[in-house]
Amino acid sequence: MKKIWFPVTLGFLVFIVSFQLLKDEPAKEARVLSSSSPKNTEVTNIGTEWVKDDLESAPIKKNYTPATVVGENDGTGIRPDRIVIPSIEVDAKVQAKGYTKDGGMAVPDSVTDVGWFEPGTEPGRRGNAVIAGHVDGQYGPAVFFDLKKLQSGDELHVYDKKGNRLTYTVQEVVAYPVDQAPIRKLFGPTNKKALNLITCTGTYDKSAGGYLERLAVYTVLTDRTKA
């Protein structure tokens, strides 16, 4: 009868080992899923270039990230009405959304519409415009379910009500643990005309009622077409 413990223990061990191997480990660091640059571009800089110094004729090394400067070429913005991402077959209505009661970013209740962060930048202008959408609803996939499949170089289009079209190109796809998401990098000042898409990813935490990671797709404006 004692030997009954052998199969039971074996079963437990197999359970432990397979669970450890199978479970989605909540990431503790950002994961770059796709990037147009060879390395992790968490730190963006203007690159190392050699420029002539006016005062000394020796070349100097230049390496820093410039501040956000307001200029003449800041561009005109549109109020987004529709977003189309051909590579993952998304064609969704865009709602203008603001803050939640706690000061977070509000998103549509709908799982087929996406939300543009209206207090922030209008698409087309210099700055970080942000559009967020659900990855899933209570019972199945939602509008941004396939967002993680986007690759750097993929294009997407944002339209206003009149049909003016902005084309953005994906630069980088990164998943962040939710409490480490770089809010200033996603929403804050920038010299680029950027559009950042956000959805949930990673493990769903039932007790907290939310996903443990956020997926960020960084895109920049590459074309404008008038209606």
């Binding site: 803050y99 000061g103 977070g104 899933d136 939602a142 956000i198 959805t199 996903y211 956020r214």
Partner: peptide, 12 residues
Amino acid sequence: PTSMPKTGFGGA
């Protein structure tokens, strides 16, 4: 915003 949007309900 002070926090990231909540963009999933866990259904998928």
